[in-house]
Amino acid sequence: MARSTILIADNSCMIRKGLRSILQNLENSEVIQLIDNKEDVCGIVHKRKPDILIINPDMLPGDCLDVKRELFNENKLSLILLSNRKNLKNDLKADGYINYMDGQNTILDMMQEILNKNNKSSFPNKNSETISSREKNILKHIALGLTNKEIADQLFISIHTVVTHRKNITQKLGIKSVSGLTVYAILHNLISMDEVK
């Protein structure tokens, strides 16, 4: 799965760095840059195209109600507002809110929810599936020691297809090396131990 990228914009270096260190507990995401200057926000957002922008409303250009549309029309971007103001939700519309007083778990839960939502739209639950019968067949050939070319020839498919299958198999099983895949194939009776050379 691709890692989600995050930008943090706030005037206070303690807030920026503190938040970054909290967000290190999130999986599959990375804080790519911290912004300390209001003038830079637009430029950096356009250049780095993050998945998530966490920003203090004071750093937003203009005090507009629907900030998101204004700023990043063309980007697919989740906006999270970061502030010590209490009733921010009523004033400004965003995908999420972080208050300076929020505890670590509250922040992480909220972020996780946003990450899940984002990933669902772009990746249709590909994680942790078992391998398909087509992939099992490919795996069997890999375990028998055939090269990509040989597998492609035997199954009448292109090398490119073999490579794609291999990638998916590796991703699903968490095993990269040929010898590891071979052990898996034997354990699951795809091939017998005597067949392996």
């Binding site: 099983l173 968490g174 095993i175 990269k176 090396s177 010898s179 590891g180 898996y184 354990l187 699951h188």
Partner: peptide, 12 residues
């Protein structure tokens, strides 16, 4: 290979 060995012993 080392990572694979761990994975196999843990998962499979």
């Amino acid at each position: 290979k080392l990572m694979d060995l761990k994975t196999i012993m843990i998962k499979y």
